[in-house]
Amino acid sequence: MATKAAKEQLFAEVSASCTRTITRIAFTHESDPMLRRELVQDIQLALWIALDGYRGAASLKTFATSVAQKRCMSHVARRAREPRQVALPVDLPCAAPPPDEVALRNEQKRRLDASIQLLPVPQREAIVLCFEGFSYGEMAAILGISANAVMLRCQRAKNRLRAIMERRPLI
């Protein structure tokens, strides 16, 4: 290719004589009209770039068709790697709880945490270990007291927490 003007003339020639062929080739590889238009534009861009290497060994139509075919094949390969998108039904159930329920739970947790802070330290220690899932025997070993003393502390802590939580909302 000698000059930019010669390249522009060749591109104008290709556009005038091969646009229908390029569009048909794109149609055989892409069924979505929007994606097909993009593919035709990609082919035209590829032709513009490839014209630098055009030496006239084959007809311009053969050259353009070859470029279009190769671009379509790379388009199909790229689309095959993309994840498929499926429209979800409007009534699709969600595994996560609704936001208002999450907010309510968070508020209850915050209130419970604040209420625990109001307990005497021995009851607070016992109830926290209870909430963590330790057995009375394990809590007794951790706290260095008897299992009966742990049960008594937990029972008193639960009763006091219930009274605090029912009495007033904490801020």
Results as ranks from 00 to 15, higher is better:
46 A>V: 07
103 A>L: 05
170 L>I: 02
59 S>A: 05
157 A>R: 02
135 S>Y: 09
53 G>L: 10
167 R>V: 11
164 I>P: 03
156 R>V: 00
138 E>K: 02
52 D>G: 13
82 E>M: 15
42 D>N: 06
8 E>T: 09
114 A>V: 00
136 Y>T: 11
83 P>L: 06
147 A>Y: 00
153 R>M: 03
145 I>Q: 12
159 N>T: 11
59 S>I: 07
100 D>N: 11
33 P>Q: 14
30 E>R: 00
9 Q>C: 08
89 P>T: 11
54 Y>H: 03
84 R>D: 05
155 Q>F: 09
17 S>L: 14
58 A>M: 11
22 I>T: 01
127 I>W: 05
128 V>H: 14
59 S>R: 01
111 R>T: 05
109 K>D: 06
62 T>W: 01
128 V>D: 14
23 T>R: 15
80 A>I: 01
125 E>R: 05
60 L>C: 12
98 P>Y: 05
148 N>M: 10
81 R>A: 01
27 F>R: 11
80 A>C: 02
92 L>S: 07
66 S>M: 12
21 T>F: 13
10 L>Q: 02
103 A>H: 05
107 E>V: 01
102 V>Q: 12
165 M>V: 02
159 N>G: 13
100 D>Q: 15
53 G>S: 08
117 Q>R: 14
160 R>T: 07
63 F>G: 03
112 L>G: 08
10 L>W: 07
145 I>W: 14
133 G>H: 09
11 F>L: 02
81 R>N: 06
135 S>D: 02
2 A>Q: 13
63 F>V: 05
137 G>D: 12
64 A>M: 02
98 P>Q: 11
22 I>Y: 06
34 M>I: 13
96 A>W: 15
9 Q>V: 09
32 D>A: 10
89 P>N: 14
99 P>F: 00
93 P>R: 02
110 R>V: 02
78 R>S: 03
87 A>M: 09
80 A>W: 05
101 E>H: 13
